[in-house]
Simulated assay, not measured.
Amino acid sequence: MKKHPAIQMYDYHVWANNQVFARLKELPREIYDQEITSVFPSIADTLAHIFMTDTIWLGVMQGKAMDVIQASMREAQEKIGDKRLETIEALFEESANAYRSFFVEAGDMEKEVFPEHPKFGRLETNLAELVHHVVNHGTYHRGNVAAMIRQQGESGVPTDYIFYLYEINSTN
């Protein structure tokens, strides 16, 4: 059975994150923690932000109340702890598993949802659109990470969607 396009996009998100983790493991450790002038103070902070945002949106998709989502944010902050690369990578893997379980449980990615934002109000959307937001957000910040790596004199890793497509098509 063919995957829903939103689920394939989410799989790309996971693949691209894993590409970044693999590259960071090849680089000198200080690059990950080094404070630099950028969107976030470090690569570690940028990855923590992606993880936190993924956590928020999973809660939204699951229809959780804002107070429950805020509590999950506090728990996520505690899990992140010292922002060690290995810790963040493991949290991303847990998050991916939670998303995949949710997709199976939800079934219909076109299911309408109506998240309430404290500032922006009620949104009429569907699960697929929210998944696309999560992926787009991650793509934006992986670009920040690539720039931060480059600022420190190293090359990044290609994470464009087309590279994902080539990789998954070569394994089928």
Results as ranks from 00 to 15, higher is better:
Glu112Leu: 10
Thr53Ile: 15
Asp82Glu: 11
Gly138Gln: 02
Ala71Met: 07
Met52Val: 09
Met109Tyr: 02
Met61Glu: 01
Ile88Leu: 14
Met109Leu: 13
Phe92Arg: 09
Ala96Gln: 03
Phe120Tyr: 07
Lys2Arg: 07
Tyr10Val: 01
Thr53Met: 06
Val104Cys: 09
Ile149Glu: 03
Lys64Ile: 08
Thr46Gln: 00
Ile43Trp: 06
Asp11Lys: 02
Tyr140Gly: 06
Glu26Val: 15
Gln34Asn: 09
Phe114Arg: 12
Thr159Leu: 10
Ala147Lys: 02
Ala65Pro: 04
His117Ala: 12
Ser170Gln: 13
Gly156Gln: 02
Arg122Met: 10
Asp45Arg: 15
Ile7Glu: 00
Leu127Trp: 03
Gly81Glu: 01
Val20Trp: 04
Leu27Arg: 03
Phe103Asn: 11
Phe120Ser: 07
Ser42Leu: 15
Val135Gly: 02
Ala48Cys: 11
Ala44Ser: 13
Thr139Arg: 01
Ile69Arg: 04
Asn172His: 14
Val20Ala: 12
His137Gln: 04
Pro115Leu: 14
Tyr10Arg: 07
Phe103Gln: 10
His117Glu: 06
Glu86Gln: 12
Val145Thr: 02
Asn169Leu: 12
Phe102Arg: 00
Leu47Val: 04
Glu94Phe: 08
Met148Val: 05
Lys64Tyr: 09
Gln152Ile: 12
Ala44Phe: 05
Thr139Pro: 05
Gln77Gly: 10
Leu130Gly: 08
Gln62Glu: 14
Asn18Gln: 15
Ile88Cys: 04
Ile50Val: 14
Lys83Ala: 10
Ile31Tyr: 05
Gly107Arg: 00
Ile31Asp: 01
Trp57Ile: 11
Gly156Val: 01
Ser95Thr: 15
Val104Met: 10
Arg150Phe: 08
Ile56Pro: 03
Val104Gly: 07
Asn136Ile: 06
Asn17Asp: 11
Glu112Asp: 08
Ser38Tyr: 05
Asp11Met: 01
Ser38Asn: 09
Gln8Ser: 07
Met66His: 06
